[in-house]
Amino acid sequence: MKETPSSTIKIDFWQRLSRNRMLLTLLSVLLFLLIWQVLVSALNLPGFILPSPAEVGRKFLDVLRTGLLWRHFSATLGEILLGLLFGVSAATLLGYALSKSPLAERLLSPFLVGSQSIPMAAIAPLLVIWFGPGLLSKVLICSLTVFFPVLVNTLVGLRDVPPELREVMESLRASPAQTLRYLEIPAALPVFLGGLRVGASLSVIGAIVGELVASDRGLGFLINVGRGQYDTALVFVAVICLVILAASLYGFVLLLENRVLSWQTWRKEV
């Protein structure tokens, strides 16, 4: 069979396109924006119901220039990072302690399971009442949201360290600290990082829920402001920033996982 030059070029183009992930993503985003814009113009929707992408873009540049966006973005980011710091540290420490004491684990596990099923949105107002509308309550809410997945995964990771490898450490007369360093941390790390990945995503939700309840800064506050002023474009800007924030956090943990677990080509029984 003979192909005409133009058809080979066409096939070549589509093949190259389907291989280029970046370009594809960009294209799909552009397509989405286009549909959105067409929808808004066609239905003639007012801006406070659904602003057009162009409007949102204008708003974005606007708040970016005045520094408003950065102020609120950095406030939320700060809450999340502090929340992660405290939540992850507390969960890791408690997880290690509980893994060493099966009795304590059994005593605490009903509370752990129970508290995990309380929606954060339900206790966020409570925390705001107790700890005020400032930074503290947000950091606490954030910490609590990351706490449980990280705690559970730390526990599971440590509990699943193969007992025969524990025996090896014991036969080599390793101290508890050495066992932690040479065996428990590397063995539990994959599961732990899985928990951190979930926790990092949840922490964004935690911070926003806290801000929506009561705050004077942050992306959640910005959403409240936008809503109050029927400035829907502002709400969109805040939401998009949140998505970017959550995705970057997730990506960062993923990167960490790939980095730390590069030796993880194993997973076979040894």
Binding site: E164, L165, E167, V168, Y182, L183, P186, A187, W263, Q264, W266, R267, K268, V270
Partner: peptide
């Protein structure tokens, strides 16, 4: 009886 090596 088994090698019990640290896989990482």
């Amino acid at each position: 009886q088994k090698p019990n090596l640290l896989p990482w």
